[in-house]
Nucleic acid binder design. Structure first.
Lengths: 219, 219
DNA sequence: ATTTTTTTGTACCATTTCGCATTTAATTCC
DNA sequence: GGAATTAAATGCGAAATGGTACAAAAAAAT
């Protein structure tokens, strides 16, 4: 059971330029890729339906190693979610920052979102935030906090987008950027849910297209 | 462990006006209220995290009775979901059918939705469709079909709403009813998710208000 | 080479889980 | 009252689950 490194390098790994010569037996796994595998599993099956055996098999680490590296199941879930958020943020931040017309920025954001939600060998993977909100957020305060953070972060990013566009005169005078931002987030959420239900990409793109038209005050 | 009938009569029970004189030992449970209890549990914890023991305790039925009445866990989940959809539909159908101005209809729909999503003693219960989509829809084709049905049913209801409003001249000429309908559904989805994350009702109402303003082409 | 340190690998434990087989109870039909 | 019928109650059992103890292994430090 050997790890195949089919994960992107991801964000992280700033320290340790090469080997700092650790003392004991060397690790047989790469924490980054192991966490990526765990993330994949949690995303597909959710917290409760993912067993430590599954995680062990997927990461190539036996249970005690898993435990030693990431803590118990809940901690591993939380770390997976953090990793997911880091990756998702990294994939979108450039577009949110970019200085392009509103419509183009929205198109690019939603294209990325669809890529994230629809990828996966054993079916579309959806959005971890939505999945986590649906299952764990009610009962676990820490996880709930992370979910709320994730939601408001998206709202804010879209909010900046629309405020900026309004200042540039890309939007009619009366429009409320905050409301448009919430609708933009809502569109993210609805395509995440539909992707999970295996609605084909074409239909999701149509929904996105219609949403962008409305949000840009089209026509 | 006795059932307390704190469930609304719900839709169903058309047959059997009184007792049709069944043959053997009488049932100690009311299938309708038992299913309601199961639904509550599944809504709170999801499929995987809800054990038969939990269901047994909540319904007041011991395991074999549960099994005999509803089949195995998956069947019980599916029946719970059907019941949820029936109830939700029943709560909304009158409003969708009613002949009121667009804005008023939307306000009423979202008020009902918030009631459904936010109620629950041990925290907000969210939307079963969203929860199910997030967890079970990828892996189970039958459940996936039900989720898609639920999603498209809502899209259609909103679609009729907006088409009707456009015909009446409540909307600008250029608007696309289908796009607005998808955004209306998306708003349902986003408040379901946020409710689950315990976002307070006030904030959700603000989001709804903003969405309605945009959807009605206000200002 | 020996010790020290860190990780792996095996095996185990207590609990929980789902499902069912069997027995007991309550009711109607004859 | 006794047979038939239906459901409840008990409890078993095999498998899975989360977590850990403990020994073997691989490296550095001495």
């Amino acid at each position: 059971m050997v790890q195949k490194n089919n994960k992107p390098p991801s964000v992280a790994k700033i320290a340790a330029p090469v080997t700092p010569k650790r003392r004991g037996r060397p690790r047989a796994y790469e924490p980054d890729v192991a966490l990526g595998k765990a993330l994949d599993l949690f995303r597909r099956d959710g917290f409760a339906a993912t067993s430590l055996d599954d995680l062990s098999a997927a990461t190539g680490m036996n249970r005690p190693s898993l435990y030693g590296a990431f803590g118990d199941k809940r901690e591993l879930y939380i770390k997976s979610y953090q990793r997911y958020r880091d990756d998702a943020r990294a994939a979108m931040v450039d577009i949110f920052r970019a200085d392009a017309p509103l419509r183009e920025r929205l198109e690019r954001i939603y294209r990325i979102a669809l890529d994230i939600y629809l990828s996966g060998e054993s079916g579309p993977r959806g959005c971890f935030t939505v999945m986590t909100a649906a299952s764990e957020a009610v009962s676990d305060p820490d996880i709930r906090t992370m979910v709320v953070e994730g939601l408001t972060e998206l709202d804010k990013a879209f909010g900046i987008c629309f405020r900026h566009a309004k200042e540039r005169g890309e939007l009619p005078e009366g429009t409320d950027p905050a409301s448009l931002a919430h609708l933009a987030s809502a569109t993210i959420h609805t395509i995440a849910i539909r992707a999970r239900a295996r609605v084909p990409r074409k239909e999701l793109e149509a929904i996105v297209k219609g949403a962008i038209d409305v949000l840009c005050g089209a026509k």
